[in-house]
């Protein structure tokens, strides 16, 4: 087992384990902070998939932006929902969660079936890309290529996403302002 493989299994274990903890814990604050661990482990997985720029973006935007926003909303939305949550559910598996658990388990079985049957190593386009040396090697630096592609090949989606960000910014500011007394 090489170092890369060991790191992959470590990251996958941390990501899945902390995600299960996020889903199962009663304490909302603790679940938000464990979600932080999940996002960090996912950034590690992106690095192992040779996408270092995406990993950095994940840390900057998800961990720095979204998580802080979620914490903010949690702090602002009162503390009585904390007591409420710990009062109603004590066990991870209780009878009112059984349908959700069943749904998730069935989905997992289906997804694993699809993934295993797909046999990704022998896909047609993957083989073609390997032949044409189109796969990313660990020694190549990708960030410059991403920047050039963003300004040439993907310029239209880039502009569209910037307009959408503008709309979301204005919309969020509009939604969260104080209501004018009528």
């Amino acid at each position: 087992m090489t170092l890369v493989q060991a790191l992959f299994y470590l990251m996958a274990f941390v990501a899945l384990g902390s995600a299960v903890f996020v889903a199962s814990t009663k304490n909302l604050v603790r679940s938000i902070f464990m979600f932080f661990i999940t996002l960090m482990a996912l950034a590690g997985l992106y690095v192992l998939a040779l996408a270092d720029f995406v990993a950095i973006t994940q840390i900057v935007i998800y961990v720095g932006g979204i998580l802080v926003l979620i914490l903010f909303a949690f702090m602002l939305s009162g503390r009585e929902n904390l007591n409420y949550i710990s009062a109603i559910q004590n066990k991870f598996i209780s009878i009112r969660k059984l349908p959700a658990l069943l749904l998730a388990a069935l989905f997992l079985i289906g997804l694993i079936n699809v993934v295993v049957k797909m046999d990704t190593g022998n896909l047609e386009w993957v083989k073609i890309s390997m032949e044409q040396k189109n796969d990313i090697q660990p020694t190549i630096e990708m960030t410059g290529n991403i920047g050039v592609n963003l300004m040439t090949h993907y310029l239209l989606p880039f502009e569209a996403v910037s307009i959408l960000l503008m709309i979301a910014l204005i919309g969020a500011a509009h939604l969260s302002r104080k209501e004018v007394a009528v």
């Binding site: 890369v4 493989q5 992959f8 996958a12 990501a15 899945l16 995600a19 299960v20 996020v22 889903a23 999940t38 996912l42 997985l45 192992l48 998939a49 959700a100 749904l103 998730a104 388990a105 989905f107 997992l108 997804l111 694993i112 993934v115 295993v116 797909m118 046999d119 990704t120 190593g121 993957v126």
Partner: peptide
């Protein structure tokens, strides 16, 4: 590491999300 490993981790996360 093959793609299949990544897809399996993704499947697990997706189901926890559901």
């Amino acid at each position: 590491i093959t793609i299949t490993d990544f897809l399996l981790v993704g499947a697990g996360l997706f189901c926890i999300g559901i």
